[in-house]
Design a protein around this nucleic acid. Sequence first.
DNA 1: CTGTTAGCGCATTCAA
DNA 2: TTGAATGCGCTAACAG
Lengths: 339, 339
Amino acid sequence: MIAKEFDVSISTVSKALKDSHEISEEVKERIKAFAKYYHYKPNSLALNLRNQKTKTIGIIIPQIVHHFFTKVISGIEHVANEKGYNVMICMSMDSYEKEVLNMDMLANGVVDGIIVSVAKETEEKGDYTHFKDLINNGIPLVMFDRVIDEINCNKVLTNDVDGGYLATKHLINIGCKRIAILTTPDYVSVGTLRKEGYENAINNSNLPLNKNLIVKIDEKLEIEEQIKKLFSLKNLPDGIFAVNEIYAAIAMKIATKKGLKIPEDISILGFTDGLISQFSSPSLSTVAQHGNTMGQKAIELLLNEIDSQETDYQFRTKIVETDLILRESTKKLKYNSIK
Amino acid sequence: MIAKEFDVSISTVSKALKDSHEISEEVKERIKAFAKYYHYKPNSLALNLRNQKTKTIGIIIPQIVHHFFTKVISGIEHVANEKGYNVMICMSMDSYEKEVLNMDMLANGVVDGIIVSVAKETEEKGDYTHFKDLINNGIPLVMFDRVIDEINCNKVLTNDVDGGYLATKHLINIGCKRIAILTTPDYVSVGTLRKEGYENAINNSNLPLNKNLIVKIDEKLEIEEQIKKLFSLKNLPDGIFAVNEIYAAIAMKIATKKGLKIPEDISILGFTDGLISQFSSPSLSTVAQHGNTMGQKAIELLLNEIDSQETDYQFRTKIVETDLILRESTKKLKYNSIK
DNA sequence: CTGTTAGCGCATTCAA
DNA sequence: TTGAATGCGCTAACAG
């Protein structure tokens, strides 16, 4: 403000800029013109301290290089900006420690609320005190995709079970008899839920649930080797449901190398509609997750909580449905009467 | 601090926490223990205002969904965190207006320095006043990848010309005679530089430079249609250099559909070592850009400038070299004697 | 209609 | 060795 003292006091300027009714039109005009001319902007730092809020929200995600997360971020950014908020992104690298560090930092007044997708290591470890502390400190939190049941907060998630069901059901419908699943270890919530959908679909059909066809990938080991085992079975699978597109792409590659034709000999279906799915050849049929929508829902819930004055604020869990995107890696449905 | 007044004054506490020599050991111990017990953390907002710095740096990129940018961000984040800085990410969506908005916001005390890759629209428009203003305001700026020559600041860039040369030269070496290039409109600096490398390589060989083989993709139109034209030439190309992996992937798809064998009939080489390149089949030979390294260099330059007291600070431009990654989409080199 | 004051939370003089 | 005062830039309450 300082320099503005070309004739009036500092607070007069402040009021004029805020169009206060208690300042004469003439002075307001002059001051506004002056401010505009010099591109005056109230200092954010001072405002932050004064208002005890920063108009920025924090996001903690495991990895920014995952296409799905970038879609979510885009969704968040878009509506956040619209509402005058900025976005601060942190990566936990799937590490518990980095997640805690990031939270501490964000919680210290840097941010008005936090959106997080839980690190794998945190899920594995099961220590959620940092989330509880955050909530106790009154900082709004929303979890998306990888969420913790026992934490009471707003949540946005993919209907993973349904997605897994949809995918598997489709493989059944196109005539696959031996359907394998490439999934994650049990502690990764989303993988496990998708597997649940897979199992439901198999059980609802007249196909047997075959343990040999369930492959839980341990990412600390060589992924390719683990998938290859599936192809050394005496009875090869004729359908594969992979809980992410990387596993699906690797499976396609191995299948092709083994001389199998996709989709004639084996149909492959992934999860998440990323770049790989679109641009691989054959292009990959997949379960679309609508990351953008998830991001939007998440930020809407968060801003809603931030703005809310209610003492008995009710947390909500929004489920974002999945869609099947059929491309070239799965056989065409023979009779469109099948359901 | 307030609550700490369990026996001493507010400033004593402040000093004790900073391990000031002018406080007795005993009191320091007690206060520190107390602070630790209650997880006391000095409020960032107050510190920011007091110190006139935020220990966070801003990044403005065109699109977060591009794999290359996520690699750069990862690189930046990593070393920023190490040095105690946080990172605020904004997207310009390749729009001039959003770029300016983001800069204004970041420049207003929110951030100690800015790293940017220029929006396409800004390059097209040629209006760089927002960058000049930023620099005049004394806010450190570093540009990476898509940079503006006439702006005087630290820069990090890919050796695009060399990358284009390397790629094209390799296609020549494996015996391609009619090498096409899929590039961007002229105003996109990186595309144009890669094309320059392409032209250099062609001119250095005994192949003719054929205008028909240079395709400038206009992303406002259907990309696929524009690439298809290449395949309706009477003389088909036997090699394609694409300035990004999307164009390369689309070209592969079209070629396959036209019944061409990759790499026997046509070799295809992309730019940027993203997921598509790794997981497409055939996997894509490509020019690796080392996004991580670029990010690291960028943040190092920025922090260097922030810390620098020198009045005659010299700006630098770091060039990150590219590497050829040979996979399945290009023919093998016949004699490894060729250079 | 305009100006003065106080305080957001901290660290840094300077005085005791 | 400790504490009181000041200011970072701003706004809202209160005075004039």
